[in-house]
Design a protein around this nucleic acid. Structure first.
Lengths: 195, 195, 195, 195
DNA sequence: AATGAATGAGGTTTCATTCAT
DNA sequence: TATGAATGAAACCTCATTCAT
């Protein structure tokens, strides 16, 4: 079966090949992907998989880390608490980027974020995108641009709004309408108390 | 042989016994419950299970339908679009009831609403509690008590807020703070435009 | 593959069929028998095996219990401590029967009594054939027919002599010579102190 | 890259390092030691193992040879068949040394002498410690110190007695009692026929 | 001589579902 | 309608051994 000969790769490279093979398959076929499929796609043997990932869930964790890392890298927080900065705009950018990021993930998203795996291996708080949103809210508050609400609790709920928006778009809801509803909630929630 | 031990029951009764046995186990033990456990708890034989439920997922669907039905039954919409009715209050009651309902479900909730099953068998739109929230928003709007936002799109997102609030409480977040954040979002989002 | 249809058997019968199939294969092929082989030989499916034996070692335990049970059944201890009974003769019968029993076991014997399994799952003291030999020695002592040695410690070592004799015969040593050597040791060891 | 870390050793030295690493691990952890563990302990790479030992069993053979060699070296036979020599004493020394040697081996002993390996690769007759015991018996007979029994057959069985004594001590039996029982058997068995 | 990534056959085990009774 | 023994497809994982470097 194996046509080519044994490929000896740098571990980093091989690891990445496996991850990317899995991403490809999960994106296309959703949750019914098995170790066997991944190694076939990656051109590796079954044992090689377990050399890099002690268990299937560890692969999913690696994929999740990559996704979250990419999201983090793409959205650097504005440094200070500049009162003149357009804080609502920052929030909006973050939200839209998140939605579009999720949509681009295709079948990968439910597997990583809505499956039993997500229950078994919750995202470590530090890596969770909520922390980014919460930080942004906090900064905007310091700049006087947002209402004086509880950033952690509210951040979590607003992140849920973003996530649900993404799910809605993935399921075929009208993107424009979904984004509008999301923006309305974010805007109204964060708007500072009237003087 | 020992036909006598076969309990011949009214099918409805037998069906309910199985459902309730499953609810008990899932509430306590979460996702690791197997058909075998359920029938043992229900005092039935394995084959009997499949007489009532073509597949495991059908049992989960039945459980979900019961839960959603109970929620619906508990929260009858106020009939007309009475302008003098306290519409924010109605929303709040719905939300808090939902949160507490989810918390009371224990391990049942993730299995029914966050597992692979939830992906495989999405809730039919008509049964979805969102529709209830959406209807409430719509009525409140007609009464002039709410802003003129898109009820379907916004209802879905606000329902996600309620759901996330519940998850937060289940995970151990401070109930008071979580509810406060939820109320803030609901209130700010729905409040009518200032004259 | 499976030609005949699903065979529904009484659990006791099915269990025995599996045990006997395993005995047949182990006797013939020694230690390289796998679950897969056993179920094929027994005309059962793989899952059926695990219905009866949680693990491979449990099958071996069952086989061992059968062997030990058969040995016990075949050799009832003489009831009292009759001084006129021919005690050396009883010992001799036990020993020869044991040797011949082991030889008849063929490839079964090393697997059950000399493999890693034997280490992982030592024979419970109560079931061990040593206890039979020890009891016999004790009775003979009471009858004044044997020397006043430590029955437990000596019994264990004399049983090892019996076992080694059996191994020797299995390996092709001359049965007559091996038995003679065994008898010499047993006789000399147990003979009462000269008056 | 990093050729420098390759330790180029005298083959004999390297081979011994691997053997001793394995002995250390087997002594401590018994049968669950893997090639990987051994090479880690020896500071070598996996492939290096197979440069010195075609298969795992060959390592075990090498260990066994070392053990048997050490035993042989420690117990030189008295040269002639001196009638005045204390032959029973020689036997006793051999036996006690053997027992204590086995006890000192710890987890090494079952792996080398009671595992599947012992079946797959029986000890070559020439290297077997039985031959030493047999030779001693033979010499004692020539000196008239022992009974006129079959040295080969009896030697094998008496060696089994020694071995079982060691096992008993390893398993926690009282050393004094076990040795006493062993001595009794050896003494009675070998004692010359009364004139 | 040395390395260590790669292999893949093998083994154990699980459990939803089927079906003979 | 009820039973529960039987099924078998997967899934998971291990580790001795190989071989490209």
């Amino acid at each position: 079966m194996r046509l080519s000969t044994r490929r000896r790769l740098d571990p980093e490279v091989r690891r990445l090949e496996i991850i990317e093979a899995a991403e490809r398959l999960l994106k296309a076929a959703g949750p019914d992907v098995r170790v066997e499929d991944v190694v076939r796609e990656a051109g590796a043997a079954k044992g090689t998989f377990y050399l890099y990932f002690p268990a299937w869930d560890d692969l999913l964790e690696a994929i999740r880390a990559r996704l979250l890392g990419a999201f983090d890298a793409a959205h650097v927080l504005p440094p200070g608490a500049d009162p003149k900065a357009d804080w609502p705009r920052h929030i909006d950018r973050l939200a839209v980027a998140f939605v579009d990021g999720v949509v681009a993930m295709g079948g990968l998203h439910p597997v990583i974020f809505h499956s039993d795996f997500a229950q078994r291996r919750p995202i470590p708080a530090a890596d969770h995108p909520v922390s980014r949103l919460t930080a942004l809210i906090r900064k905007g508050q310091q700049a006087g641009a947002f209402a004086r609400l509880d950033p952690a609790a509210t951040g979590r709920l607003l992140f849920a709004v973003m996530h649900e928006t993404a799910d809605a778009v993935v399921e075929g809801d009208d993107r424009r309408k979904a984004l509008a509803a999301m923006r309305w909630i974010l805007g109204r929630t964060l708007a500072p108390e009237a003087a």
